[in-house]
Design a protein around this nucleic acid. Structure first.
Lengths: 215, 215, 215, 215
DNA sequence: GATGAATGAGGATTCATTCAT
DNA sequence: TATGAATGAATCCTCATTCAT
């Protein structure tokens, strides 16, 4: 389990407390970086005592897997919502379909940027904390994408669908996330396209890749 | 200037010390994160006293712009080395050319990963420290790329070369850097392709994008 | 409020700790200057950890307003104790009355010299920390003195009682405090009179001033 | 000698350096407290190297006796300038004479406040550094004052001229110095009279004291 | 269980002083 | 002799974590 360091919260009160803490954490993450949030900060925002935090979480790091879980849950919900039905895929224009999908994904990522930023940064700083779960999330996404490619395989140039599915998610994710998380105030690689226009560009890149025949 | 907080080192001895410090920093960055390196750590590794660090650098943060400069310098050197001559561009197969370029870039990024990792993370944590210089680096890269596209414009589908140049670097950079910096032990988006094969995939993605005509 | 930087101490334990810290501070001030007392010094003397000091006080400077408050409290108590009743003032010999008062004041100042020394020095070094409260203390003292002069106005030469009250406290305070705080080992202006004899001299000076008619 | 820790400056160059340092110190004292002036600060202001300071002065403390000497010299000059001739004393109105004297003294003290402030504070913080010389200065002042009282003894009420001389300087000095050094921004005992008016008040106080007969 | 006071190791930074050049 | 780079002890302060109440 990802949250192996979170103490089990069985009682109603405990669960409430845990929820209060996660809400507080999310609120604080909109303002500042995870590392800049002290445990007293968190306790104050949640309206509980410091000791209570430690009754629920072995230590500060134990919050990170929970954050990751939050991301996973919301992410799964989004995938479900955004999933296109098989018949739609068959009938639609592929390039347009990709654009629609990418716009939805980008919009979602931007809304959840505060969570994702923490997950990203901490995931890189303390990989061991969320490594396995991240891989699982990835696998699920991959499977969904692989199924999608199966539906459109006659309309694309790539023949190795596994590899294509992998690269396609990889490229879309890195591009969208980088822009959503860091492009505004960070150094980041500056790109003038914004919002839907940016999402469309990324969709086109994916489309171009899928269209490609063997070297 | 990026290193406005580094105190000027005029004497031979100072320069030596500064070099020792930068070397020590680079060595430590291969082991741990910038934030995990304490000033005493750094001083010990460099074989100097704590105060000496502060004689050369206004504070710990002042090391970051220097790190960035290090990256800039090496990066410029790499670009120069890897640059293809106009006649080569004209004669070569575009897809192959992109692969060669991408392989070189990826290889370079992997070698310098420890520096780039610090620059990336710190650039996101303290954007004001390297913001402007990063933009300059980006501009230079963009200009080079724009010139390259000019040479091959008859062989690609994109008509807005400015936008294409931007997207192409953006996508290549985010993809290569993500993989080089975080894919090994980090959560990262897992991709099975490794090394040159991975670089080739990215090159293909760029190639596909360039080949694309209007929607 | 003068102690705006002292964190509120609500629990019994906190109050005890704060008391321990103030006691330790007072003890150390008998030995050395405020600036020579380090936070670890203070913590050790109080028998608490360094962090505990910072839980009660935002920083080292925040102790100064508390010291000032200590002085204010003791000072107020002293004024109350030493206050003469209206009927006593009317019946007593003015010169003798002033001497009695000055002796009491001088004795008190000498007993509290360690506190007053810190307040004085720090008040001059960091005026903003106690400026307003000092002025209030001064105003109170002035008011009391003004009332006293009102009772004896028929027996003195000065006609501007406000000015006279001001000068009288001023001169008495600077003289007594200088002697009490610095005369023993400091450079100070050496005066051979000691103890009550010194206080009597100052009382006489005040008496002479009050007796004076217009120029 | 007060400056026993200042290394002898025999050569022309050394003397020049020492002068540069003292000038720099005086300049810096107009801006900030002695303790807030670091040796590098001082060296920079004087335009010499840090090491050079230590060639002239055993340590930072060794500057204080020199500062004191500066004060002594200027003070002696002032006393000489302000001294009244015997015949003037005899003929003049005593109260008026005291006022004139006090105005001159106060004006001088205010001009030299930056030096005197340092001497005062440091004299209290490190008494051993200037103790003896201060006593000598005091003795001289006392002798001058005693001679003055001798000239006017028929016009005053005090019979113990030694004691009167002592108290008179003491009271005048503490009052004038306190006001000149700390009254403006410090906590200090607030007195509304300013400049000459304040000096006149102090003169009156002295006059009143001198006029006083036995208790 | 909850509370929040107390802990103390650890970090950044300063600056008087030394000493190699 | 002058220089200024180097030294390192000392200081303030933080904050994750513990534990008495």
């Amino acid at each position: 389990m990802s949250n192996s360091f979170a103490r089990p919260a069985t009682q109603t009160r405990s669960i409430k407390t845990q929820q209060k803490l996660m809400d507080a954490l999310e609120a604080l993450l909109r303002e500042k970086d995870f590392d800049a949030i002290s445990v007293p900060d968190l306790a104050a925002e949640a309206g509980v005592a410091v000791g209570t935090v430690y009754r629920r979480f072995e230590n500060k790091e134990a919050l990170i897997p929970l954050l990751f879980e939050l991301w996973t849950t919301r992410s799964a919900l989004q995938m479900e919502t955004a999933a296109v039905k098989a018949e739609e895929v068959t009938s639609a224009d592929l390039r347009q379909l990709l654009r629609t999908q990418m716009r939805a994904a980008y919009s979602f990522i931007r809304e959840q940027a505060h969570i994702l930023r923490a997950v990203h940064l901490q995931g890189r700083l303390r990989p061991q904390l969320i490594g396995e779960d991240w891989k699982q999330l990835w696998k699920d996404a991959l499977a969904g994408n692989r199924a999608f490619l199966e539906l459109v395989k006659d309309r694309i140039g790539q023949s190795d669908l596994d590899r294509a599915a992998e690269m396609m998610i990889y490229i879309a994710n890195t591009a969208l996330v980088e822009k959503a998380l860091f492009n505004e105030d960070g150094p980041g690689y500056v790109v003038s396209a914004e919002g839907d226009a940016f999402a469309d560009e990324i969709a086109d890149i994916v489309y171009g890749y899928l269209s490609l025949g063997p070297a």
